[in-house]
Amino acid sequence: MGNADRGGLDGRRALVTGGSKGSGRAVAERLRELGADVYVTARTMPDGYELPDRFIAADTSTVEGTALVASRIEEAGGVDILVHVVGGSSTPPGGFAKITDEQWMIELNLNFLGAVRLDRALVPSMVRAGHGVVLHFTSIQRQMPLHDSTLAYASAKAALRTYSKGLANELAPHGVRVNAMSPGGIETEAYERFVDRLAEGNGLSRAGAKESILESLGGVPLGRFARTEEIADLAAFLVSDQASAIVGAEYVIDGGTVPAI
Results as ranks from 00 to 15, higher is better:
177 R>A: 09
177 R>Q: 09
178 V>H: 00
178 V>P: 00
178 V>F: 00
179 N>T: 13
179 N>C: 11
179 N>Q: 10
180 A>P: 00
180 A>Y: 03
181 M>H: 02
181 M>E: 08
181 M>R: 03
181 M>I: 02
182 S>K: 04
182 S>P: 04
182 S>C: 08
183 P>Q: 03
183 P>G: 02
183 P>L: 02
183 P>F: 00
184 G>Y: 03
184 G>L: 00
184 G>F: 00
185 G>P: 06
187 E>T: 01
189 E>G: 14
189 E>L: 04
190 A>E: 14
191 Y>C: 01
191 Y>E: 03
193 R>I: 12
194 F>H: 05
194 F>C: 10
194 F>D: 11
194 F>P: 11
195 V>P: 07
196 D>V: 15
197 R>H: 15
197 R>K: 15
197 R>D: 14
199 A>D: 11
199 A>R: 03
201 G>L: 06
203 G>W: 07
203 G>S: 12
204 L>H: 00
204 L>P: 13
204 L>A: 08
204 L>N: 05
205 S>R: 02
205 S>N: 12
206 R>V: 15
206 R>C: 11
207 A>R: 10
207 A>T: 09
207 A>Y: 01
207 A>N: 13
207 A>E: 10
208 G>N: 08
208 G>K: 04
208 G>R: 01
208 G>Y: 12
209 A>Y: 06
210 K>Y: 11
210 K>W: 07
210 K>A: 15
211 E>H: 13
212 S>K: 07
212 S>F: 12
213 I>D: 04
214 L>P: 03
215 E>D: 09
215 E>A: 14
216 S>K: 01
217 L>F: 11
218 G>A: 14
218 G>Q: 06
218 G>L: 06
220 V>N: 05
220 V>M: 05
220 V>A: 08
220 V>G: 05
220 V>L: 09
221 P>C: 13
221 P>A: 15
221 P>N: 12
222 L>I: 15
223 G>I: 07
224 R>W: 10
224 R>P: 07
225 F>W: 02
226 A>F: 10
226 A>M: 14
227 R>Q: 12
227 R>C: 04
227 R>F: 09
227 R>I: 06
227 R>T: 12
228 T>G: 10
229 E>R: 14
232 A>L: 06
232 A>G: 09
233 D>E: 09
233 D>R: 05
233 D>I: 02
234 L>Q: 08
235 A>Y: 00
235 A>P: 06
236 A>K: 03
237 F>S: 05
238 L>C: 04
239 V>I: 14
239 V>F: 04
241 D>M: 07
242 Q>A: 05
242 Q>F: 02
244 S>R: 11
244 S>W: 02
244 S>Y: 07
246 I>H: 11
246 I>F: 13
246 I>W: 04
247 V>F: 01
